[in-house]
């Protein structure tokens, strides 16, 4: 199958970070960047499908400034066949703006499947995949935790609150991938060498209009009044008293 995986370059979530001087973005100083967590699962799903179902092609598509070439190279070293870099100076926060550019690239390009992460770990939006699918007019299942493809049709599971939903869909289709579906492999030395020769096409990103912007970014409010009530079981009565009279949650 010909499979596209949309991957985003995001700050490494393990790192502690600071808000930049503009008060609306993250200070990039000292940050490591990597493929967004869920997008890593999406790559793994694509690679496994082609390993199981015979030869195909996995194409990674990433939108953003030049720095993301490094991210695309990493995807290539894991086993992705080629990369497409949709170039723009800054990535908008508005998912629909990004979706317009991705849809323009992916439309009529012969993909059997187009995969996304359930949500990018920087925006926390979880909207780009569903929006791109809608713009393309393709069947869509989001946040899937299980997938089977057979004879041009798919079956997927999604985890709802307290229940698992099963759906079926025809290919070509768009899927957004939840974690847990397939543990991502690491780049091998051989993969890293091979990646150097794999192609990355660069094209300008045809972003859509931006209607959602970040006015301010803050660290979450420090919870004030937080305190250690006491040590050991003897502190329990005081805790319960506070929950009743002060916090009023009992």
């Amino acid at each position: 199958m010909k499979i596209a995986v949309c991957i985003k370059r995001v700050p490494d979530t393990e790192m502690r970070f600071a808000i930049a001087a503009d008060g609306k973005s993250v200070d990039p100083a000292g940050l490591k960047f990597d493929i967004s967590d869920f997008d890593g699962y999406a790559i793994e799903v694509a690679l496994r499908l082609n390993e199981q179902q015979g030869p195909g092609e996995v194409v990674a598509v990433a939108l953003g400034p030049d720095a993301l070439q490094e991210t695309l190279r990493k995807a290539l070293s894991i086993g992705v066949d080629r990369g497409i870099h949709l170039k723009c100076d800054a990535v908008p926060f508005d998912g629909l703006s990004i979706a317009h550019a991705l849809a323009a690239e992916l439309r009529d390009a012969g993909y059997n499947l187009i995969l996304f992460g359930r949500m990018a770990t920087d925006t926390g939006n979880g909207t780009v995949g569903a929006m791109t699918a809608t713009l393309l007019g393709l069947p869509l299942v989001t946040a899937i935790s299980h997938l089977e493809i057979k004879d041009g049709r798919g079956t997927a599971h999604r985890e709802l609150e307290g229940a698992t939903e099963t759906s079926t869909f025809p290919l070509p289709a768009v899927l957004t991938i939840d974690e847990g579906i397939a543990r991502p492999r690491l780049p091998s030395l051989k993969g890293i060498m091979a990646a150097k020769k794999k192609p990355i096409d660069i094209r300008p990103a045809a972003l859509g209009p931006v209607r959602l912007t970040v006015e301010a970014l803050e660290l979450p409010p420090e919870r004030t009044g937080g305190r250690i009530v006491g040590e050991g079981p003897d502190a329990v009565p005081e805790l319960v008293r506070l929950l009743q009279t002060e916090a009023k949650v009992l």
Partner: peptide
């Protein structure tokens, strides 16, 4: 519309401006 939204897996709170 001005909206609050947790970003960066809850490490930051974004104030968003939405038009339309």
């Amino acid at each position: 519309v001005i909206a609050r939204h947790p970003a960066y897996i809850g490490k930051a709170i974004a104030t968003l401006r939405l038009t339309g």
